[in-house]
Amino acid sequence: MLHEAPQVLIALEQSGLAAAIRQSVWAYPAANVGHIVALTLFAGSVAIMDARLLGAFAAAPPADVVRPARRAAMLGLLLMAVTGFVLFTAEASHVAMNPVFQIKAALIALGLLNALFAGRALDAVLADTPARVPLPTRVRLSALLSLMIWISVAACGRLIAYF
């Protein structure tokens, strides 16, 4: 674990953009609100997607639920990244050294890797699985892992302010 923030993050925090974010009355709170709104979209669609993969809403063919939910999740993730960048930039060198933020960053990496690995083979499985048929164990395991990781990411995000 680092004891001093990397130079690039110190430079980011000292940039004109970061100063503009800090000096604006509304930019930081707006990004904060936007981050939460994006979270509801992201977490909601991830939860629907993972719940279907785990066997909920079994009457619907999995592809009909998972594909649109995944698109919504990707939009939510994009909005989270944009608003998160604004929040991070304002205090980059401090936030980066926050232990909870470091756990959060590692969990995000893990969540994205899980989505990437699970997502690669998912389309073929979805096309082959009709309604009311359980999905393969590895698909259900990665859906469970996904749920646990993203809930932990959200918890860590909120806890950054307390450490």
């Binding site: 893990l110 892992l145 932990s152």
Partner: peptide
């Protein structure tokens, strides 16, 4: 992967 994820989450819980 599951084990690693659980360990990280335990870290988060300890932080709480």
């Amino acid at each position: 992967k599951l084990t690693l994820g659980l360990l990280l989450m335990a870290g988060c819980a300890a932080a709480v």
